[in-house]
Design a protein around this nucleic acid. Structure first.
Lengths: 184, 184
DNA sequence: TCCAAAAATGAGAGGTATCGCATAATGAGA
DNA sequence: TCTCATTATGCGATACCTCTCATTTTTGGA
């Protein structure tokens, strides 16, 4: 599915791979989209694990948001096959939203507590941040440079209420950390 | 298609309505998605026309962006059938992006000229603004109040480099105009 | 050994997109 | 005005797909 695309992978193929008949597939998944969601959940979990230790080492919530955003985009770009799969699942399935936003929510809430974000943590801010993240990943997969990750990170901070200058400063500071992570 | 949904409308039905055979459909559209894009293009054009006179009466680019964003969301919410159609087309088809962003581009460029926006007008800002707009429409269609329109407008201005306070001020000022448009 | 529940099956209904072929429209030259 | 090659338009059988459902097979506790 990751290699040939979602549409090019038929349910019959999946069933055959599992040595089951076509119809049996539907006993385990409501429809084709549900298995895609399940795969994406695993992918996002792996992505979060890959960056969690470094993310948690950052004290400031704004730095965490900045780092998380850039890193998510870079990881997705480093594995375009999975990145693309994730993108196609992003809008089609509600379920995936929760998985991707889980850590984002925590960081944003922390930022409000720390006083660096003025925006309340509700469904709509999260949706907005996710939308920006998605735009960043898409752009990066389409060939844009690493700069889009940095910009997406700054946009996140701006939406959360930080001034353009502060957002820029925070993002510059996380660049070292992003660099360090890239060399791992 | 608007009434029963995209998926519930089969190509054969469309062809039958046009009094043509199934296969003939594909002489006019590459695939089903292409006719959806064409329909959406017409819808967005109608939406822009509906608000263009009021939008152009605003002098400041930031006010135009704020008004345009809120108004787009409200129009889409007022005609949920078309709004939903638009949303499903939004991510699936590149073509629709250009139609929706056409006027946004002009307003943002004007804002840079007027000095109220610091962000360069490139593909990625536009993608980001569109992503936020989309999140707003979706949220509104899912039952959120008119507040999401206002918030989406402020987020737009923040991403474009305005401080949270300035963005808020501009948005409050456009509220009267939005009100006036709603009563038309 | 029996049998109800659980698991699996595959035919079939309805969909999308393709393709080779048939027919209609066009327009340049005699 | 007629002819006819060329191009545009239309057709429907076909391959392959998704999802449903009546039916059959398997399983494991009594």
């Amino acid at each position: 599915m990751a290699e040939r695309g979602i549409n090019a992978t038929s349910v019959s193929e999946i069933a055959a791979e599992a040595e089951l008949a076509n119809g049996t597939f539907y006993l385990y998944f409501k429809d084709k989209s549900e298995i895609v969601a399940a795969v994406c959940q695993a992918v996002t979990l792996a992505m979060h694990n890959e960056m969690s230790s470094m993310r948690l080492s950052l004290e400031g919530a704004s730095a965490r948001v900045s780092f998380g955003t850039q890193q998510f985009i870079e990881i997705a770009a480093a594995e375009p096959t999975w990145g693309r799969l994730l993108m196609s699942a992003f809008t089609e399935f509600e379920a995936i939203k929760d998985d991707i936003s889980r850590y984002m929510r925590l960081d944003v809430a922390l930022g409000v507590e720390q006083g660096c974000f003025t925006e309340p943590v509700d469904e709509f801010v999260i949706d907005t941040l996710l939308a920006i993240l998605r735009a960043g990943v898409r752009s990066r997969l389409d060939g844009a440079s690493t700069v889009v990750g940095a910009r997406a990170a700054e946009y996140h901070l701006r939406v959360l209420g930080m001034s353009a200058e502060d957002a820029h400063r925070v993002r510059l500071e996380t660049d070292k950390v992003v660099e360090r992570q890239a060399n791992k």
